[in-house]
Design a binder for these strands. Structure first.
Length: 900
DNA sequence: GAGTTTGAAACT
DNA sequence: CAGTTTCAAACTC
C-alpha cells in the first residue's frame, strides 16, 4: 500500500515556499488589455516579483481603466481622511504608524491605549446605499464622463442626503467610540458634515454646497495628522485639495467622492510609491463606499435620475473599492467589522489607510501589504506594485463585517474552477495571482447580487475571503451563488477553522462575523479575542483554500474525470489534479490521493510541482489578442489566427496537431509560434510558418531557379544559413507574447501573391491598409525579417501601418540588437537553435515574465529589443523611407533580387 | 474493452 | 539540459 505520506515528506522537504507566480496570463474568459499590458511593460527594468504581478495583472479581465486617469488627482499622502461624521456613524478607526503620527504631534494614539505604535484615528466609513442594483461587471468601470456629469447634478439631489442617516443606521450599529480625540462635527446631522483639510476649507467654495457625510477628527488633530502625512508630490497635494475635500450631500455624491479619491490614489500610487520607495507613506484614508441595493429602497424618494447616478456611482464604487484593496501597504491591521478598526503595527512606516468594509458589498476594503492580490494591482504599474511589496512586509487580513467575509479581490465566475494552485500556493508563497484575479472579476458580478438581495445576515453575505499572509496572501473566495445555508455554513465554518494553516507573522486586520455587528466597536487593537478571531480566520481561509474551492471547482467542472492508476492523482498526468480540483466519485482513478482527506498531501505535492514549474497549474490556454498574422496554408489560403493559444505550445510529431493528443487542438486553439509541432495541420489554426521555414522555402524557390546546379537541399541550406537568424523563431515567440499585440483576425484576402506568401505578415499588413491593429511584435518581425521579406515591407507605402518610424529608429539605434539580427550570415549551429524541435528551456510564461525570465542570451537580447519596440504605438506619422536603414535594406533587397 | 499510439510530464 | 522513461489520454480495432 502506497502511502501518500512518503510522498508528502518528500514534497515537504523539497517544496519551495518561494514565489510561485501563479500567473495565468489570461483566464479563459478574459482578454488581456493591450493597453494594460503596454503599461505594464513599459519599464524594461522589472524585478521578478514585478513581473509576476504584471502577469497577474495581465490576466485580469478588466480593461485598463482609462477613466481612472481622467479623474482629478488626489494627494495620496494627504488623503488621510479627516472626516467629519456623526458620532453615531463613526465606526472605523485607522491605525497609523505611531512613529509618523507622533512626529506630527498627535496624541491620539496614546489614547488608544494598547498599541505602542498604533494610532487609532477614527475614520469614516461610508456606507451608502446605492439605488441601483444593476451594475454588472460590465459596469465595473464608470465612464468618467458620466461621473462628471453626475457631479454636476449632485446638487440637484441634495434631498437624498436625508437618507444618509437611514443608510448609516441600516448599515451598522453605532460603535462605541474609544477614541477620545475625535470630534464629531455636526453631531447627528448627516447632511452638513464637512470633510476638509484645514487648509482647504477656505479655498474650496464648491464645498460649501456639499454636505459632509463623514466624521472627522477635529481640525486640530487633523492638522497634526496631516502634517505627519506630508509626503511627496505637491502636484498631488494640489489635486487633493481640489478633490479630496469633496463632500457629498447625498450618498451618491459620497460615492462619487470615493471614486475620485481612489481613482486619483491609484493613478498616483504608482508614481508616488516608486518615488517614495520605502519611505513612502501610503494614502491614508480610505473611504469605503458601499452600494447597497437597499439604497433605493431606503431612499425611496430618489429620483430616477438619481438612481441612474447611483448606478454610475456604484460602478465607480466598485472600482474604487477594488483599488482600495491594495492600499494597505505595510499595514497589519485588525479590522472589526461594523466598527472596523484597522490596526497597523509597522514600526517603520506610517500605516496605510485601511478601508472599511462594507457590510453588504463584501467588497474588499482591505489594503494589502504586499499589494499582490488585488485587481487594483492589476491596474497599477509594476513599479507600484513592486514598491508596495517592497515595503509592505506585514501580513494583512481583512474581513468584512459580514462575518468573515474577507476582502475580496476579483471576479470569479461562480463555480468556475478555481485553480488549486491559486489557493494553496497563497499560503506558503508570496502571492496568489490566479485567484486574486478571479476574485477581482468575481466581485463585480457578485456585488450586483448582493445589492439586489442583500441582508445583514453575515453568513449569507459571506462572499469572499482574503488573507494576506506573511509570505503572501491567501485569497479565498466563496461563491455567493451558493448561498444555500449549508453552503454558507460550510464556508463560514471553514473560515473559522483555518487558523492553523495560515500563520501570518504579524497582526491581522481582523473582522469578525455577525458577532461583530452586535459587538460594540472598541478601540482595542488586538485583544486576545481578536487574536482568537484571527486564528479562526486563518483556519477558515485555510479550509477554503484547500477544500471549499477545490470541492466546488471540482463540482463545477463536473466533466473532469481521470483514470489514473499509478500517479495517485498527484501528478499533472491527472487531469483532475492538473485542473486543481479534487477527484470525484465518478473518477476511475486508483489509489487516489487527490481527495479532500488528503488535502495536505495534495497541497504539498502541488507546491512541489510548482517549485519546478510555477506555472504548472496555470491555465494552458491563454486568450490573447493574437498578434500573429494570418497563416498561409499550403494552398495559399489564409487561416485566421486564433484568439487564444496554448501557452507553451504543443510538441506534436505525428498527430499533425489534428488529434486530441495535441493540446492545442484539444483546446480548440490554433497552434502558434510557441509550438514546436511538426507538420502542423491544426484545423483551428496552423502554426505560423516560421521565418526560418518561410525563408527556406523562399530561398529554395528563388535560389534554385537561379542556380539549377544546386540540389534542393543545398538551396535550402544556403538560403537558411545565409539569410536567417537562428533565433528568429524565438523572436517570434516573444513577439507573439508582447503585450501590445492586437487582434486583427479579420478576413484576409483570399489570394495572395507569391511574394506575400513568402512574407505573410507583410502581406497581411498590406491587406489591411487601414488597420490600426498592427502589433509591435509584428513590426519587429517585419523590420527584422530576412531580406527576402523586408523589402516588401518597406516598399509598401502604407508601411506606416506596419511599423512606427520612431520605433524603428529606436531599434536601429539599439546597440544591443542581437548580432544575429545584425548579421545576415548565420552559423549553422544557430539554425539548430531555432529548430522547431528545439525544446523550450524555460517554462511557459506570460508575456512579461517570459521576457524576464528567459535565460537564453538570444532571448535576452530579443527581450531588450522587444522592449524597445513594444511601447511604440501605431505611428502617428506616415511611414517614411527616409531612414538610412530602410533605404539600405531596400537596396539590399533590390540587390538580392537582382542577383536572383 | 483491450490494445496501441501519442505526447506531456517526470525523471535521469 | 538533452535524452529517456513514465504516464494517462486519445485513439483504433
Amino acid at each position: 500500500m502506497e502511502s501518500p505520506e512518503g510522498d508528502r515528506i518528500k514534497v515537504l522537504s523539497s517544496s519551495t515556499p518561494a514565489s510561485s507566480p501563479a500567473v495565468p496570463v489570461s483566464s479563459g474568459n478574459g482578454h488581456v488589455s493591450p493597453l494594460f499590458n503596454f503599461l505594464s511593460n513599459l519599464s524594461p527594468i522589472k524585478s521578478v516579483k514585478a513581473a509576476r504581478y504584471t502577469q497577474r495583472f495581465s490576466e485580469t479581465h478588466f480593461p485598463t481603466p482609462p477613466p481612472v486617469f481622467r479623474t482629478p488627482r488626489l494627494d495620496l499622502q494627504r488623503e488621510t481622511s479627516f472626516f467629519k461624521r456623526p458620532h453615531s456613524q463613526l465606526k472605523d478607526y485607522l491605525v497609523f504608524d505611531s512613529d509618523k503620527v507622533d512626529e506630527a504631534g498627535t496624541d491620539v494614539h496614546g489614547q488608544c491605549g494598547n498599541r505602542s505604535n498604533a494610532l487609532l484615528v477614527p475614520c469614516l466609513e461610508k456606507e451608502v446605499h446605492c439605488c441601483s442594483p444593476s451594475g454588472g461587471v460590465e459596469e465595473y468601470l464608470t465612464d468618467p464622463v458620466e461621473v462628471e456629469d453626475f457631479t454636476n447634478s449632485v446638487d440637484s439631489h441634495v434631498q437624498q442626503a436625508n437618507n444618509l442617516h437611514r443608510l448609516l443606521q441600516f448599515s451598522f450599529n453605532a460603535p462605541k467610540e474609544t477614541i477620545p480625540k475625535v470630534n464629531y462635527a455636526n453631531d447627528g446631522n448627516s447632511e452638513d458634515y464637512m470633510l476638509m483639510f484645514p487648509d482647504q476649507a477656505k479655498a474650496d467654495p464648491p464645498l460649501s454646497s456639499l454636505d459632509l457625510v463623514e466624521t472627522a477628527v477635529d481640525q486640530k488633530d487633523t492638522e497634526r495628522f496631516d502634517g505627519s502625512l506630508e509626503l511627496t508630490s505637491k502636484n498631488v497635494n494640489d489635486q487633493v485639495e481640489s478633490n479630496l475635500l469633496l463632500v457629498s450631500r447625498t450618498q451618491h455624491h459620497e460615492q462619487y467622492m470615493a471614486q475620485i479619491s481612489w481613482n486619483v490614489k491609484w493613478q498616483n500610487a504608482g508614481d508616488q510609491l516608486n518615488q517614495q520607495s520605502s519611505s513612502c507613506q501610503l494614502p491614508k484614508s480610505f473611504e469605503r463606499v458601499k452600494s447597497y441595493k437597499g439604497c433605493l429602497e431606503s431612499s425611496g424618494s430618489a429620483s430616477e435620475g438619481s438612481s441612474k447616478e447611483a448606478t454610475l456611482q456604484q460602478c465607480g464604487t466598485r472600482r474604487h473599492l477594488q483599488f482600495e484593496t491594495a492600499m494597505t501597504c505595510k499595514s497589519t491591521a485588525t479590522l472589526k467589522s461594523h466598527s472596523s478598526h484597522i490596526v497597523t503595527e509597522d514600526a517603520d512606516n506610517l500605516k496605510i489607510p485601511v478601508s472599511f468594509t462594507d457590510l453588504e458589498s463584501l467588497i474588499p476594503s482591505h489594503v494589502e501589504p504586499r499589494g499582490v492580490s488585488n485587481h487594483m494591482e492589476a491596474r497599477s504599474s509594476d513599479q507600484t506594485i513592486a514598491s508596495w511589496t517592497s515595503f509592505c512586509p506585514s501580513e494583512f487580513i481583512r474581513s468584512t463585517q459580514h462575518g468573515g467575509t474577507l476582502s475580496m479581490s476579483g471576479p470569479i465566475p461562480s463555480g468556475t474552477g478555481l485553480h488549486l494552485n491559486s489557493i494553496s500556493r497563497s499560503v506558503p508563497m508570496s502571492s496568489d495571482l490566479i485567484l486574486s484575479n478571479k476574485l477581482a472579476g468575481y466581485m463585480s458580478s457578485q456585488e450586483e447580487k448582493y445589492t439586489s438581495g442583500h441582508n445583514n445576515n453575515l453568513a449569507k453575505n459571506l462572499n469572499s475571503c482574503f488573507i494576506s499572509s506573511a509570505a503572501g496572501e491567501l485569497h479565498a473566495h466563496v461563491d455567493n451563488n451558493q448561498q444555500d445555508d449549508q453552503g454558507v455554513e460550510e464556508i463560514s465554518s471553514d473560515i473559522f477553522q483555518s487558523t492553523d494553516s495560515i500563520k501570518p507573522p504579524c497582526n491581522y486586520l481582523h473582522a469578525t462575523l455577525s458577532e461583530q455587528q452586535a459587538a460594540p466597536c472598541e478601540g482595542e487593537i488586538l485583544t486576545s479575542e481578536s487574536i482568537d478571531r484571527v486564528e479562526e480566520l486563518n483556519q477558515c481561509l485555510h479550509n477554503l483554500k484547500t477544500s471549499t474551492f477545490r470541492k466546488r471547482a471540482a463540482e463545477s467542472e463536473g466533466c473532469k474525470r481521470c483514470n489514473c492508476r499509478r500517479s495517485k492523482c498527484l501528478k499533472l498526468y491527472c487531469e483532475c489534479f492538473a485542473a486543481g480540483v479534487y477527484c470525484v466519485d465518478s473518477c476511475a482513478c486508483e489509489s487516489c490521493y487527490n481527495k479532500p482527506e488528503y488535502e495536505d498531501t495534495v497541497t504539498d505535492t502541488r507546491q512541489q510541482i510548482e517549485s519546478r514549474n510555477p506555472l504548472a497549474f496555470a491555465p494552458k490556454i491563454v486568450k490573447h489578442a493574437t498578434d500573429s498574422p494570418a497563416n498561409v496554408l499550403e494552398d495559399g489560403n489564409w487561416t485566421t489566427p486564433a484568439s487564444a493559444r496554448h501557452k507553451r505550445g504543443c510538441n506534436c510529431k505525428k498527430s499533425k496537431c489534428l488529434k486530441k493528443y495535441c493540446e492545442c487542438y484539444q483546446a480548440k486553439v490554433g497552434c502558434s509560434d510557441a509550438c514546436r509541432c511538426e507538420d502542423c495541420n491544426n484545423s483551428f489554426g496552423k502554426k505560423a510558418e516560421s521565418m526560418y521555414q518561410r525563408a527556406e522555402r523562399w530561398k529554395n524557390h528563388s535560389h534554385c531557379k537561379v542556380d539549377t546546379t544546386k540540389t534542393d537541399t543545398d538551396c535550402s541550406k544556403a538560403g537558411t544559413v545565409k539569410q536567417f537568424s537562428p533565433r528568429w523563431e524565438e523572436f517570434a515567440d516573444i513577439s507573439h507574447l508582447t503585450p501590445l499585440s492586437h487582434s486583427y483576425s479579420g478576413a484576409v484576402a483570399p489570394s495572395v501573391s507569391p511574394r506575400t506568401r513568402d512574407c505573410p505578415k507583410v502581406s497581411q499588413a498590406q491587406l489591411h491598409p487601414g488597420s490600426n491593429l498592427k502589433s509591435s511584435a509584428n513590426h519587429l518581425r517585419w523590420r527584422y525579417s530576412p531580406m527576402s521579406c523586408t523589402p516588401q515591407l518597406f516598399e509598401n507605402k502604407d508601411a506606416h501601418e506596419l511599423s512606427s518610424e520612431n520605433t524603428f529608429t529606436e531599434i536601429r539605434k539599439d546597440d544591443d540588437i542581437p548580432e544575429i539580427l545584425k548579421n545576415t550570415s548565420t552559423p549553422t549551429k544557430e539554425i539548430k537553435a531555432c529548430s522547431p524541435n528545439k525544446k523550450r528551456v524555460s517554462p511557459p510564461q506570460f508575456p512579461s515574465q517570459e521576457l524576464m525570465s528567459s535565460s537564453s542570451p538570444g532571448l535576452r537580447s530579443g527581450r531588450k529589443f522587444i522592449w524597445q519596440a513594444v511601447p511604440s504605438f501605431p505611428p502617428l506619422t506616415p511611414y517614411s523611407k527616409s531612414k538610412e536603414g530602410i533605404s539600405q535594406m531596400e537596396n539590399d533587397f533590390e540587390q538580392n533580387t537582382s542577383d536572383h
